[in-house]
Design a binder for these strands. Structure first.
Lengths: 205, 205
DNA sequence: GGCTTTTCGATGTGGTCACACCGTAAAGCT
DNA sequence: AGCTTTACGGTGTGACCACATCGAAAAGCC
C-alpha cells in the first residue's frame, strides 16, 4: 500500500484520486437528482461518462461508493464555507462563522440546493444503514462542537442547556427550515430571516 | 365504484378497508425498520402475513401502496394527537394544542419513534418523487395553517414574519430536533426542553 | 527489456423486483 | 338460479441489480 498522498511508487497511478473524485461527484449528481435509491453502478457510470467496470474498479462495493460520495459532499461543503470566510478562517470572529455556517445550511443557489438535497438523502439513509449513520453522527459531532465553541466565544452568558444544546438547536432549526425550502413549502428569504433571528436570540442571551 | 364509506353494494366486500389498512400498516413497519427502499411487494406481504397476490390485488402499483401507507401514517398520528387532547379537541386552549402537537413531533416512545422514522423517510422520498411531494406539501400546509391559527389565538402580538412563518419555524425546529434524537446525537429530554423554550418564546412575543 | 501492478472494459451470474396474467372461488346482486 | 364482480393464490416475465471474473492494455519499477 502506498503512502497515502503519494503519486508515485508501485501503488495507484497519477490519476487515481482524480478519477475517484470524478466518480464520487457523479454519485452526488444522481443523489441530488433522484435520491439515494437511484444510485446504481450503471447509473453512476453513465453520469460520470465512464464504463461500469471502472466504477467497480475504484469502488469494489456500493457501500464504499456511497461512503466516498458522502465524504466528497462534505469536503465540497467545507470548501464553500472556507471560501466564504476568506483567508483568515481560523481567526474569523465567531459571530461571523456562525452566520456563515448557518446560512450555508439554507439553499441559496443551485449548488447549495443540490448539496442540501444530498445531505437530506443521506440523513434519511442513516436511519436505515448503520455505516452511514456512523458517518453522519461523526459529522454532526464536529459541527455541533464547532458551533458550540463559537457560541462560547461569542456570547457571554451560558444558556440553560449549555452551548452544546444551543448549537444543536440552531442546526436543527436550520435543517428543518432548509427542508421546507427544498420542498417549496416556504421561501428561502423567509427561512433565512427566521434562522438569523434565532441566531441573534442565541447570541443575545 | 361504491360510495366511499359503503360496506355493501356490488363493490368491495366487508373486509376491504380493514385488509387495506392491515397491509398499509405492514408497509409502515417495513419503512420504520429499514427505510423506504426496503419496501417491496414480497417484503410487505411477508410482514403482513399474507400472500403477495393479495397485496397486489389491493394495491395495483407500488406507488399506490406507498401513498396509502403515507396516509395511514398520518391518520394514526392524528389519532394520537386527538387522544392526547381529550374529548374537547375543537375547543382546547390553543397553547395546549401547540404544546401537544409539537411534543408529538419529538420521539417519546417506540410508537412515536417508529412514526417519526417513517415521516423522515417519506420526507426524503418527497425530494425524489413528485407524487409523494404533493402529499407531503398538503400535509404541511394543513399543519402550518393549524399551528399559525393557534398562535394567532394564543399570542397577542403578530410576530415579524407573520404567524405562518412562526409556525413554520416551530415545526422546522421540532423536526430538526426529532431527527437528532432518532439518530442518537442528542437526547429526547434535551430536545423537548429546547422545543418548549422555543414555543414559550413564540407565545411571549 | 523483463516484471509487477494498476487500470478498466467486457461478460457472466444469481438474485430480486414490479407487475402481468391466469384460474378458481366466493360473495352478492337481480 | 344465474350472472357479475370481487378476492386472491400462483406463476411467469422482462428488467435491473450488485458483484464476480477474465483478459488485455498500460503504467511504472528494476
Amino acid at each position: 500500500m502506498p503512502s497515502s498522498a503519494s503519486t508515485r511508487g508501485r501503488g495507484p497511478g497519477l490519476h487515481h484520486d482524480r478519477r475517484r473524485t470524478e466518480i464520487a461527484d457523479a454519485v452526488l449528481v444522481v443523489v441530488a437528482g433522484r435520491g439515494l435509491p437511484a444510485v446504481s453502478l450503471t447509473e453512476v457510470a453513465a453520469h460520470a461518462g465512464v464504463s461500469p467496470g471502472r466504477v467497480q474498479h475504484y469502488f469494489p462495493t456500493k457501500q464504499k461508493l456511497l461512503e466516498a460520495a458522502f465524504d466528497r459532499g462534505n469536503e465540497r461543503s467545507e470548501e464553500r464555507i472556507r471560501a466564504r470566510l476568506g483567508a483568515g478562517t481560523a481567526d474569523a470572529p465567531p459571530a461571523e462563522v456562525l452566520a456563515v455556517v448557518l446560512d450555508e445550511l439554507i439553499p441559496h443557489d443551485e449548488e447549495s440546493r443540490a448539496h442540501l438535497r444530498v445531505r437530506h438523502a443521506f440523513n434519511a439513509g442513516a436511519l436505515a444503514d448503520d455505516a452511514i449513520a456512523e458517518r453522519v453522527r461523526r459529522l454532526y459531532a464536529g459541527l455541533h462542537g464547532s458551533l458550540a465553541a463559537c457560541l462560547a466565544r461569542a456570547g457571554g452568558r451560558e444558556p440553560a442547556g449549555g452551548h452544546e444544546a444551543a448549537a444543536v438547536a440552531l442546526v436543527a432549526q436550520a435543517e428543518g427550515l432548509a427542508y421546507h425550502v427544498l420542498l417549496g413549502t416556504t421561501g428561502a428569504p423567509s427561512a433565512r430571516r427566521t434562522l438569523h433571528a434565532a441566531l441573534e436570540a442565541a447570541l443575545a442571551r
